Simulated scan of single mutants.
Amino acid sequence: MTWMFLFLSALTIAVDAFVWKKYLRTAPLGITLRSLLMLLIVLSDLLMPLSFAILRLIPDNTTAVVRSWGLVNLLFLCTVLPRMIVYAGYLGRRRIWRRLGWGIALGTIALFLWGALVCRNRLRVEEVTITSDRLPAAFDGVRIAFFSDLHIGVLERPETEIARLVDTIRSLRPDLILFGGDLINIRYTELDPAVSALLGRLDAPLGVYSVIGNHDTGVYIKDSLALDRETNLSRLIRRQEEMGWRVLNDETIYLKRGGDSISFSGISFDAALRNYRHATDLPDIDLGSVYESVPRESYNLTLCHIPQLWSHITAAGYGDLTLAGHVHSMQMKLRLGHTRGVSPARLLYKQWSGLYYRDGRALYINDGIGAVGIPARLGAAPEITLITLRRGE
């Protein structure tokens, strides 16, 4: 990521220096306006170095540091990017290109402000029906509320936002509630007593379950002497258990309803995969401990964090339905009717959002709740998925 900060910073400064020397220095603006314009350009050019300094040089990733980093990134996108668009418009000889540049620039600012103030808080419920002839009769009609990637530490108003989330899930009256990992953003203390009390209100006849995501493992804690990863993870799991959630840690249990049962597996994020978390394909992974002694004739529901595990799960003969999160649609998605839409996530992931089928098995990827990197979501609104299981062809 370092190269990206350095490249963007150098590019921005170079372009601004060129435009200032060639056009703005001699423009008939008046000394006061010219000085103010120069000051604003210089300050905005410092945003990317500031973002780099916050991320790399500050001793630890506290909640305040991470939120400040996100706001600096958003300010960069709202100032520097529109300015570059205006510059591009002035490359055209005709006035129409200049007006178009200004229009797109102002639209870009409005888009990011909408993403930060409106879309990021526009909680939506996606209803999905999954049909399988392998599903036991007693589970026909079971409703699963699935959400993921809460990232508590980056929520602007954690208690307000989580209270609304909990109330929405409870109003759906699900039979089973599942969480797909990344409950926290950096450290377990984000799951404080007030937030724990709110999330502890979630309840369902078949239970509330979660798995561990990459952020939950503590790999983003810098000051590991003050809080090591193992302690962070164990305390996070304990706090979830105190809320009434069960954390499935590379294991399989059986859910019973009527006289039938299905196998339910949970796969924790392996910290060894940190450098592969955005990779298209993962190295060989041994899932033997997860599915040990699990009969393949049993309908299997698998909950994991990263969707790249799907091919490994199905290759092992399991995952009639696999649920994952992690991608967030990279917090940018243009929805086109009832299609999956368009997102830069397509460039990194084979499966990145919504429902996929392969050889009679299904994968659903939830777009998550929190916003990492910048406190905004552009079209990829926070999602609760309500899944109805149906028995049939």
Score class of each variant (00 low, 15 high):
224 S>L: 08
45 D>L: 11
273 L>C: 15
171 S>R: 14
18 F>A: 02
206 L>V: 05
38 M>F: 15
388 T>K: 08
140 D>E: 10
380 A>Q: 03
135 L>E: 03
134 R>H: 09
76 F>K: 01
336 L>R: 00
198 L>M: 14
91 L>D: 01
34 R>C: 07
92 G>H: 00
130 I>L: 05
5 F>E: 09
350 K>Y: 07
177 I>R: 06
54 I>D: 01
245 W>L: 04
182 D>N: 03
308 Q>M: 13
86 V>P: 00
173 R>K: 14
353 S>C: 08
287 L>C: 08
268 S>Y: 11
200 G>Y: 02
206 L>I: 07
203 D>G: 11
63 T>S: 12
269 F>E: 01
392 G>S: 13
1 M>R: 09
207 G>Y: 09
339 T>N: 14
278 H>D: 14
102 W>G: 02
339 T>C: 14
14 A>T: 09
316 A>Y: 06
121 N>E: 15
166 V>L: 05
230 E>H: 00
358 R>Q: 12
90 Y>A: 01
343 S>Y: 12
124 R>I: 13
335 R>G: 13
107 G>S: 15
150 L>Q: 10
131 T>K: 10
86 V>S: 04
319 G>F: 04
332 M>D: 04
350 K>H: 10
271 A>G: 05
49 P>I: 12
117 L>H: 12
237 I>P: 01
43 L>H: 03
295 P>I: 10
158 P>G: 09
367 D>A: 15
333 K>W: 03
345 A>E: 01
299 Y>E: 05
251 E>F: 04
16 D>M: 00
334 L>G: 03
69 W>T: 05
362 A>M: 09
12 T>E: 01
37 L>Q: 10
381 A>C: 15
140 D>H: 14
57 L>Q: 14
135 L>C: 06
256 K>V: 14
297 E>A: 08
196 S>D: 11
378 L>T: 06
24 L>H: 02
262 I>R: 06
241 E>T: 13
272 A>E: 13
326 H>S: 03
3 W>R: 11
89 G>W: 04
293 S>P: 01
199 L>P: 02
188 Y>S: 01
366 N>V: 10
66 V>D: 03
307 P>D: 11
160 T>I: 15
214 N>D: 13
253 I>F: 08
278 H>G: 07
384 I>P: 02
34 R>W: 11
337 G>C: 07
379 G>K: 09
69 W>A: 12
29 L>R: 12
27 A>T: 07
174 P>E: 09
309 L>G: 06
288 G>K: 11
149 D>Q: 12
